[in-house]
């Protein structure tokens, strides 16, 4: 029996004991978060669902390395982050072997919101990869500074610094947009 308020950590502990219900509930609750994480990594946008599957396979293989009742999200996102990095490297390698074409195909239509509000692509594409990743974890996945530090194997101070620089950059973009209105 799965209680909808049961914590992710407790579901994960039961998943380690091969509880099918807990595994399904965990997949149902973690997948939306992972999917948003991958959709917001601009370079991997088209591969988000493949990356998601790859990450779940890795999470499954690595499930014995989760220590029961430690925060789950940093552990999940640390694995997701490396799945994304490996995919990026693979894609870069593949692109370096691909033939150049004379005419570039039209890019897909960006997802945009109302005309007076910024779209997520504009906001995130202005940030370097490491700052983007920190902002996505903090503001979209709702993780704390300490959790982001664990997921990215860095110190809380370094996370705060990246977030601060990202806010500065975003503030500039948003105020530039305000002034052009």
């Amino acid at each position: 029996m799965i209680d909808s308020a049961e914590s992710l950590e407790s579901l994960m502990a039961r998943y380690q004991q091969a509880d099918e219900g807990a595994a399904s509930a965990l997949v149902g609750r973690v997948t939306p978060l992972l999917r948003r994480y991958f959709l917001l990594q601009a370079s991997n946008r088209t591969h988000a669902d493949d990356l998601l599957q790859d990450t779940w396979m890795r999470l499954h293989r690595a499930r014995h390395t989760y220590r029961p009742y430690e925060p789950l999200l940093p552990w999940v996102l640390a694995i997701a982050r490396y799945a994304s990095l490996d995919n990026y490297r693979k894609a870069s390698r593949r692109e370096s072997h691909e033939r150049q074409v004379d005419v570039l195909p039209d890019p897909p239509n960006p997802v945009t919101g109302p005309a007076d509000s910024p779209d997520i692509d504009t906001l995130l594409s202005a940030l370097p990869q490491r700052q983007r990743e920190v902002i996505v974890m903090l503001k979209i996945s709702g993780m704390s500074i300490d959790e982001v530090a664990r997921a990215t194997s860095s110190s809380p101070g370094s996370v705060k610094q990246k977030a601060h620089r990202a806010y500065q950059k975003l503030r500039e973009i948003l105020s530039a947009k305000e002034s052009t209105k």
Binding site: R36, G113, S117, D119
Partner: peptide, 24 residues
């Protein structure tokens, strides 16, 4: 800024819950 980001992200995920459920 976080609120704006969350709103923009919400608009960007056009397939929303159906996409999440299929992926899950």
């Amino acid at each position: 800024i976080g609120r704006l980001m969350a709103q923009a992200a919400h608009r960007a995920f056009t397939d929303g819950e159906a996409g999440d459920r299929a992926a899950a």
